[in-house]
Every structure is written in structure tokens, then in C-alpha cells.
Design a binder for these strands. Sequence first.
DNA 1: TTCAATTTTGTAATGATTACAATTTTATTA
DNA 2: TAATAAAATTGTAATCATTACAAAATTGAA
Lengths: 138, 138
Amino acid sequence: MDYSNEKLINYLKEHNIKPSTIRMKVLNYLFMNKTHPTVDDIYKSLKEEIPTLSKTSIYNTLDLFLEKGIVKVLSLQEKELRYDIDTNLHAHFKCEKCGKLYDFPISPNFFNDDHLDGFIINDRDIHLYGICKECNDK
Amino acid sequence: MDYSNEKLINYLKEHNIKPSTIRMKVLNYLFMNKTHPTVDDIYKSLKEEIPTLSKTSIYNTLDLFLEKGIVKVLSLQEKELRYDIDTNLHAHFKCEKCGKLYDFPISPNFFNDDHLDGFIINDRDIHLYGICKECNDK
DNA sequence: TTCAATTTTGTAATGATTACAATTTTATTA
DNA sequence: TAATAAAATTGTAATCATTACAAAATTGAA
Ligand SMILES: [Mn+2]
Ligand SMILES: [Mn+2]
Ligand SMILES: [Zn+2]
Ligand SMILES: [Zn+2]
């Protein structure tokens, strides 16, 4: 079930983003598909309901969302870029077999490390790679 | 002080890599510059002593080193790729001001997490971003 | 409705990486 | 040593995701 226009508009406004058709569609997609999609995933899916859609618009929209802090871009191995609507602190596990990207929680004081005294940490990427339980059980 | 040819050749042979001029030069560069260099860093530096050097050779060599497991490639934010001759478990801190990439140790059982029971972890990337002590003190 | 601002589109440019064939170097054999 | 084969290196062209940018469409105030 898609999000209501009202909810999407409010969410965008709360984050100082002027609502527009495409911004609402992309936001709805990200809310509905918490699979850490790529630019192409988003583009291909939305292209079906908006045949005139341009990929540049997806880039523009995601760049704006990044700037306003409502998405985070994950730089994975093999130059793979994925977008995450969940900007709260958490880590990721990428299955090398099925390609699925799993979330898992980490503690905020994960990095209370003497070696980093005096360092200001603004951002953290914790990416694990391997075989997920599901693929492993087969 | 550069590494001796003998040492470079032995190191390559130990890792099932046939020694060659360029492989030795790249390996020596990586041993001497533990700064997590980019392809371009390596290319530009070696180009000075080997004017005929082709960038393709750097790509070839690093791909071979990766395949044989003697380097690790770090996929950082902004699509930045850096090469690390230290393949032991450790984490990285990138300073957003000076650009320097710091190593810091982490414990092997860092990821003994219930959420990952049944998952096989083959590789870990822990990348922090912020301002380093040195930049911060200024 | 008119007009300006903003959004969206479409196309061309960019730039890092890759593919691949030609050349050079190295090692092997006669 | 010379001839030959194998491997390494080079140089150029192709690829492809992303970016730049100008044109077109849409929106929203006056
Ligand atoms: Mn996530
Ligand atoms: Mn390192
Ligand atoms: Zn899997
Ligand atoms: Zn710094």
C-alpha cells in the first residue's frame, strides 16, 4: 500500500524539500522498498508509471535527498552504489550469492576507541560481505 | 630506502605471482607508501622513473595483486578507490579535511553479533569519516 | 491569464575503467 | 647463439555510469 500524498508532502516539507511529483514518487518508492535500491532500480520501477521519466530526474532527486539528509548512499565494493532511506546508525551485510543487503544494528559507542581520541567522527560505514543464512542453509 | 630486488621477488613468488619489472616496482611502491594510494598515485609516481609506463599496466598489476590476495581495495565514499598492501584486519578513518586515510585496529570478534548467526563473513569494511586529530587541533 | 521561478527532460560531455590487439620483453629450445 | 614461443606491457578504442547544461514543461504567484 502506497503512502498517502499528504504523508509524503509532510515528510518532504519537514525536511525542507519542496514537494513535487517526482520527489513524492521517489520518496514513496524508498519507503515501500527498503531494499537499498540502486538508481537503476528506482528508475526502472517508476518509469513504468511515468513513461516520460528521465534518469536525470532520479539523480537530481537523490542528490537533493542526500543534501537534505533524508537518504544515505552506500558505497559498496565493486563500485556499487545503493540508497538507504534509513539514516539511523546501523550496519550492513551484503550476501555475495543472492546480492541481498541486510541491515543489522550496532551500538552508538561501537567506536569508543583510544586510537580515535581527538578525532571527530561524522559518518560510519560498516559493511560486511559473505554468505547469508538463507543462501547458506541451501 | 627501497626494498631489495631479492625481497620483492621472494614476496611475489611466495604469493604465486611471477615477478616482473613492473610488478616489483608497484609492490615496492606499496611497501614504501603505506598511504592507501589510488591507481593514479601509483601511476604518476612510477611514470617518473619508467617513462614508457602505461596506466593499463597499473590496472593489470593491481588486479593480479587483488586476485592473489596481497592487496585489498577500499571502496570509500565518493566512489574513491584506494589500495592497501595491509590485508590484515583493521579499520580506516578518512579525514574529510586533509584527505588522509588512517588505520586503526579492531578486534577479530568485533562482529560476534546475534543478528549474524548463520551468516558467513568473508570480508569487512569499517570506514569512518570525519576530522582527524591533526586537522582538529589547528 | 501572464509571467517568473522551478522542475523535469533530453542530449552531449566527462572520466575512470575495461577490452583487446600490437609490440616488446623474457624465457625456452634447438 | 639464433630462433621460437610465452608472457608482459603498451596504446588505443569502447564502455558505461554519472554529470553538465540548455530546452521544454509545469507550477504558482500576481
Ligand atoms: Mn540500511
Ligand atoms: Mn589500511
Ligand atoms: Zn544470500
Ligand atoms: Zn585531517
